[in-house]
């Protein structure tokens, strides 16, 4: 599989800088704690051209931060992101238009004081993808492409519904003619009856335009529907990666298994109430993550090795990778359950 988008050992730390007092204390030899959080920790991934990679995990797992690192919104603390061999960022600034983002909340991601037509056209004008003369036709073309009436270009965002705004946000991203699209929870804040419209629009556009897509969502059923492969994140690390049907069908990581088990599923054929597989406990604070495997305090398969040593990503099959000391056990357990 050729790597069109490659993410190499990317990490991102967040944290308050030391205060002047602490800096002085540190110089005088006192032990000063750095309170930085590793939001994304040493992530490596490759995505083929035209592929859709789903990124799932609970809040605080670093999936949105990873999305922003790939989109060139945040500079990584370490590592590089390359599209077709060219870096996305240089010296902390984004140097390409080939990756664009669709944000979660279309009520926040559109400038409330700008006409929606201008919101769509300003990027292309700034980067010479269109000029003042052709702008109107160019914007109209993208409005039609996302299912909006071009006569609406002079309206303001507050005059549109949530679904329409998300279409405008999609038009803004696509009008930059990107190769890679980052979708950060694009349907999470939309009404249920509107979600299907936007998902269909995504499927259609990514296929027609041959886009390489990173689809971030906490909704596993949406990810399952749109993605070719999926990466599961836990506390800033990728714990499992592989084709979506295989990962969700036969999880190799106990966390994937538990996450999938705790998603409420639509119960149609049972008159009895369903049983939930719940994960014990809560996600630990990223300020003081556990030793070894971050998941071991909640993991039913955990052994001494799991608290001593961090498991690295290793191949399960040709296209699958997992970071777990006991993945064979987990797969066997899954097969037992199926039987």
């Amino acid at each position: 599989m050729s790597a069109f988008l490659s993410i190499d050992n990317v990490s991102r730390l967040f944290g308050p800088n030391l205060t002047t007092g602490e800096k002085i204390a540190a110089k005088l030899g006192a032990k000063v704690e750095t309170r930085s959080v590793r939001a994304v920790s040493d992530v490596s991934l490759t995505v083929a051209r035209g592929e859709t990679l789903g990124l799932v995990g609970e809040s605080g797992c670093g999936k949105s931060t990873l999305g922003r690192l790939i989109a060139g919104i945040l500079p990584p603390t370490a590592g590089t992101v390359m599209i077709d061999g060219a870096p996305v960022m240089e010296n902390g600034a984004k140097v390409t238009t080939r990756v664009q983002t669709v944000f979660q909340d279309p009520f926040a991601s559109l400038d409330p004081r700008m006409k929606v037509g201008d919101t769509v056209s300003e990027g292309p004008i700034a980067h010479g993808l269109t000029n003042k003369v052709k702008t109107k036709a160019y914007v109209a073309e993208w409005f039609e492409r996302v299912g909006l009436d071009p006569v609406w270009v002079d309206r303001y965002p507050h005059q549109f519904s949530g679904g329409q705004r998300q279409r405008i946000a999609i038009a803004r991203a696509l009008a930059m003619q990107p190769d890679v699209l980052i979708c950060d929870e694009p349907v999470a804040s939309l009404d249920v009856s509107i979600q299907a419209q936007i998902i269909n629009l995504f499927l259609e556009l990514t296929r027609d335009l041959g886009l390489t897509t990173i689809f971030i969502s906490h909704d596993l059923s949406v990810v399952q529907h749109v993605s070719d492969r999926v990466a599961v994140m836990y506390l800033g690390r990728i714990v499992e990666l592989g084709p979506v049907a295989e990962v969700f069908g036969k999880p190799a990581h106990p966390y994937t298994d538990a996450l999938f088990g705790s998603v409420p599923k639509l119960v149609l054929d049972a008159d009895e109430l369903v049983h939930f597989d719940t994960i014990e406990g809560e996600v630990p604070s990223p300020l003081s993550p556990p030793s070894g495997c971050y998941y071991h305090p909640r993991c039913p398969l955990a052994t001494q090795a799991c608290s001593d040593q961090q498991p690295l990503m290793q191949p399960v099959t040709e296209r699958r990778e997992v970071a777990c000391h006991h993945f064979e056990e987990q797969i066997a357990k899954g097969l037992d359950k199926a039987v």
């Binding site: 299907a196 419209q197 269909n200 499927l203 259609e204 059923s221 399952q224 529907h225 749109v226 639509l266």
Partner: peptide, 16 residues
Amino acid sequence: SLPAMAPPGAPLAQIP
């Protein structure tokens, strides 16, 4: 319209 109701990658039934 729920994603689980359609085969992966296929268009979902949508309410217009």
